[in-house]
């Protein structure tokens, strides 16, 4: 290659040879890609499909866009929205607490605690949530009253009737939170196990107690692993709350159903509910992004490329 200085038709060679004087030469790569007809055809088909679908939806008279618009901000719908938010936040909070408890029990030295934790996750992950919800709603059939007092049928200090205590809301909260706790237990356990055992030892060598090690060293680091799947659980929970409609939980889907039973606008009301569900999940995934960034503390050393890929919407511009 280099031994052909006088060859005509290779203008690059002498230019390259003359570039060495003051270091690097700029060699831009503006290469032309080979055509990819398969990809263009697929994109065209997909674009056509989307436009056509959108068109049929927009012009479809059976969808009653005016009804949808009228009910989107309806007081009852907004009330249902609020119940959905409350159910999601509360059951996730309680579920996370139960999950941490169950995970810590699972990793403890005591076989009794480990067994109790395993039994909990086994049972509540092994039975359908729908069944659990109906069960909690009808708990009064099994335990007509709850009380605080001496165990095993001893005298009671206070006592409540199940019928008063178990409203659709409390039954829904019980069902969702306890079920969620069983899943969170696995997530938290994986998070705790992901922490380098050396961290625990370093903390113990400083003289920290088990609780201090867990709270100050292990859990904060486990959070990095726990947060992303928890965010997914949260988003999933926003929609799972709709199951509560079987016990008339007064959340978004239940109120939508109540309204269409009166005005027969079944599809329109389902779309109203869906719009709100999409709004909620979108807001939640943006929130997830910021929470995850907060727990990235001390891990800035990750290459920017890797961090970018961890963001919710692919390659963000920020």
């Amino acid at each position: 290659m280099t031994g052909t200085p006088g060859t005509p038709g290779t203008p690059g060679t002498p230019a390259l040879a003359g570039a060495g004087a003051d270091g690097e030469r700029h060699l831009p790569i503006a290469a032309i890609r080979p055509p990819r007809p398969g990809r263009w055809i697929a994109a065209a088909v997909a674009a056509f499909g989307m436009v056509w679908l959108l068109y049929t939806v927009v012009v479809n008279e059976n969808l009653h866009w005016d009804v949808i618009a009228a009910y989107l901000m309806d007081g009852r719908v907004l009330g249902g929205l609020w119940v959905t938010i409350q159910l999601t936040v509360l059951s996730m909070a309680i579920g996370l607490a139960l999950g941490i408890l169950a995970a810590v029990m699972q990793l403890s030295g005591s076989p009794v605690l480990r067994g109790a934790s395993a039994l909990y996750t086994w049972f509540f992950r092994g039975t359908p949530l729908l069944v659990q919800l109906i069960f909690w709603f009808n708990i009064g059939l099994v335990f007509p009253s709850f009380g605080l007092g001496v165990p095993f049928d001893g005298p009671k200090l206070v006592e409540w009737q199940a019928n008063e205590l178990i409203t659709p809301f409390t039954a829904a909260l019980l069902g969702l939170a306890i079920n969620e706790g069983a899943y969170m237990a696995e997530i938290v356990r994986a998070g705790i196990r992901s922490v380098d055992p050396g961290q625990r030892e370093a903390a113990e060598a400083l003289g920290m107690s088990h609780r201090q090690v867990l709270r100050r060293v292990v859990l904060p680091q486990a959070m990095r692993v726990i947060i992303p799947p928890t965010g997914n659980q949260f988003i999933s929970m926003l929609k799972t709350t709709s199951m509560v409609s079987v016990i008339a939980g007064a959340e978004l889907l239940t109120v939508s159903q109540r309204i269409y039973l009166g005005n027969f606008e079944v599809i329109a009301m389902l779309i109203v509910a869906s719009i709100w569900y999409i709004v909620l999940t979108t807001v939640a995934s943006v929130g997830q992004h910021f929470v995850e960034r907060r727990f990235e503390r001390g891990h800035h050393a990750l290459p920017a490329r890797v961090r970018r890929n961890l963001r919710p919407f692919g390659k963000g511009s920020a």
């Binding site: 380098d196 050396g198 961290q199 030892e201 370093a202 903390a203 060598a205 060293v217 904060p220 680091q221 503390r297 001390g298 891990h299």
Partner: peptide, 11 residues
């Protein structure tokens, strides 16, 4: 105690 792999708290 000082460890071979430091084990500083990364957070």
């Amino acid at each position: 105690m000082v460890f071979q792999r430091f084990h500083l708290f990364p957070h």
